[in-house]
């Protein structure tokens, strides 16, 4: 797509805003419509747009497949790890610590910087959505890499 200056310039202009919007949707998901799934898809679509316009090697400089590969697993690990953390921490009940259930976010209550840092349910939802966002972004980007890696179109473009 080297011969389409308008597409190149316009996508270069809007990609930062797509990424910013993706982050907004990710972290504003508790307050407005949005969350990990939508944010992941939006972030991945920014990467895919970059790859479509500037070629596969360019986007793989930004997001190397080795890193993306690990991020696929990391997201699920963050999610499951939050659950395991809640069981390990336990919740306060009648003044004593009792074991909490898997993904029982009440265990994440804390008093560090109260009112500024999220805690309890908010922190749990935040972490879980973060994990979902990472996995979805990574999986969608990886699917794009695999499809584009198969295409002759992209291999020729890579050599151009």
């Amino acid at each position: 797509m080297n011969s389409f200056p308008i597409i190149r310039v316009v996508s270069k202009l809007i990609i930062p805003y797509i990424l910013l919007f993706g982050l907004y949707v990710q972290f504003h998901g508790d307050f407005g419509p949005g969350g990990g799934f939508q944010a992941g898809v939006i972030l991945a679509s920014a990467l895919i747009l970059y790859g479509l316009v500037f070629g596969l090697p360019a986007v793989q400089e930004v997001a190397p497949p080795r890193v993306i590969e690990k991020l696929i697993a990391l997201g699920v690990l963050i999610y499951a790890g939050t659950g395991i953390a809640t069981t390990l921490i336990g919740r306060t009940h009648d003044g004593g610590q009792v074991p909490a259930n898997f993904l029982d976010y009440e265990a994440l209550n804390h008093d560090v910087l109260h009112g500024f840092l999220p805690h309890g349910q908010h922190l749990g939802i935040f972490l879980v959505e973060f994990g979902v966002g990472i996995t979805v972004t990574a999986v969608m980007t990886m699917i794009f890499y695999c499809f584009a890696g198969r295409s002759r179109l992209f291999n020729e473009k890579a050599s151009a």
Partner: peptide
């Protein structure tokens, strides 16, 4: 959740 699982299975089918 159904939509996102749907796109995942679609991707496997297409591949």
């Amino acid at each position: 959740t159904a939509i996102v699982v749907g796109i995942a299975t679609t991707a496997v089918a297409l591949s």
